[in-house]
Design a protein around this nucleic acid. Sequence first.
DNA 1: CTAGGGTTAG
Length: 663
Amino acid sequence: MKIMKVVSSSLTIPFRGTLKNPFLLSQKSASGILLASFHSDSASNHGHLSVFHKITKLDDALQLFDEMTQTQPMPSVVKFTQLLQAVTKMKHYSCSIHLFKQMLAIGAPVNLYTFNIVIKCCCQMSCTRDGFAVVAYGFRRGVVHNVYTFSTLLNGLILEDRILEAERLFKKLIKQKLCEPNVVMYTTMIKGLCKVGINDTAIALLRLMNKRGCKPNVMTYNTIIDSLCKDEMVDDALKLFNEMIFHKGIVPDVVTYSSLIRGLCYLSRWDDAVKMLREMEDEGISPNVITYNILVDSLCKEGMAEDAQTVLSIMVERGKVPDLVTYNSLIDGYCLRGEMEKAKEIFDLIRMRGLVPNLVSYNSLLNGYCKKLQIDEALHLFHEITENGMNHNVVTYNTLLQGLFRVGRCKDARELFNEIRAHNQISPDAVTYAIVLEGLCYNHRVDEALSLFRMIGENKLNSDIVLYNILVNGASKCGKLDTAKALFNELSIKGLNPNVWTYNVMIGCFGREGLMREAQRLFLQMEGRGCPPNRVTYNVLLQGLLKNKHFDTIEMLLQKMDEQSFSVDASTFSMLIDHISSGSLDDSLLKLIGKLVPKEGKEAAFLPSRYVKGMLLVKQSGSIFENYRNCIRNQFLVHIAKLRYDRQGVPNRRDPPFVKHAK
DNA sequence: CTAGGGTTAG
């Protein structure tokens, strides 16, 4: 069915052969010239670019395939393989597999390369099982599989999150000497380890491959660097970055820099991100569309959509064409700020740029309307998706579901939830349940939430700490302390470990009930239970103490926060100031509090818009906000803009101040 | 003619 859609592109030149291919619905082809050149190409095969590289439409490929099967004698195995590869490169995996089957049926030549392509197709479709089956079939036909085959299978298992099996395969290959792992195979295995978050083991494998005489390359390092960045361990990533350059002599590329820039942006280390950007350009590596997309997206997530647009114009100026990802980030950025007109403008811009909005575009916009409680707009858009020939996915449903709960339309929400459950292609996921439970609690239907939770049964979801946290929080906020406590106690019975969230929720719960001794008791046991208090814990505890007028430990807690560089959030800040102005707290605390107010970063960016409580705060955080924005403007945009003009005068050098030279 | 790395939505 998927293929039917793809095949219907416009065609002009009449077709000459007979139709044999079941995928081929059209009688005409734009590939007439292509076909002609194919014939001359097969006569003289000296060209460095075969016709197969020119194939961009599935139609043309299928047409060509049809011709090839009718040529007598049949073209070489190389031709068939190239064609199969062309189809695969277009990501029409199921089509490739079908063509392969046809080849077998008509006795077209196949070899190891053909098999490897087909195995890759299976793996890319998350059917690694089938990949193994194809391997077995090839084996019976006498095909000797190589390191390419096994790397592909390894990658397939990793794509399906079957990391244990991947590890087992990897070890088996080495032990039984089925193939000698090379840098690609090691890198694939390293990616698998990174994917499940065991960076240490990934790095250990990096060391091991070195010891076994297999030199890592830039891709190997990029894999680990990216993983570290995603786990917010940018400094460790920078260490590896240094190691690869100064120790291994491996030259970083645009991917290395893009990962690092993303990691730095994510932590709001704009200054360092700019330095990286500058360094990469100094090294003669230009940012590409993905790099710019990372910048655009990071700025958007920081609530700075118009600055993101400035980056967009810079990228255009530099000859890079923004793509769907760029525009989708901008849509999301404007939605985040509740500027729906601008978001819609960008959405419409997509078509004006000759692109077609995808589900991500729609879902972002839908989310924007939902968050703004413009539920009619949201519903309209929801229907527009199917009118435009697309299908809702679980994200679409979840988004709308959340919107319906937010405006209190519980009945509609539950109906939609049932629709998802009845759907034969989509099923509710953990996020769906989280949204429904949270939505019900939000609408004071804790009992309904609980009974739904019990109904899920004793499966994985029922042991999801996130769902427990939602229910505990919901029960507590609805004043059902006993329910909250009972749920919390249920955790240890089930052998589930509370996480920081759970503790934060319970501490907040006790705070609301005035049970500060209980709150303190939990706070004190956190460290020993392996989940040390975070910024939120301190804020929640402080708010409870302030609310219940327990002033004696406040200063000590603030001191501790300062030691760990945690910041006070807006509500805590507001309460502290209130108590100082009313005289119940000493104003000597102001100096300490001042140190705990975020000066930059995501928190500061959202301080005024998201967490405003009192007038005093509006004034205070307003100035922080302005400073922050100006700071970014100076550091970031001016810097990027400057790169255009300063470039000539800058000698080629490597001087990133935050990278310690290992020389 | 075959394998591996970086970007967007709940």
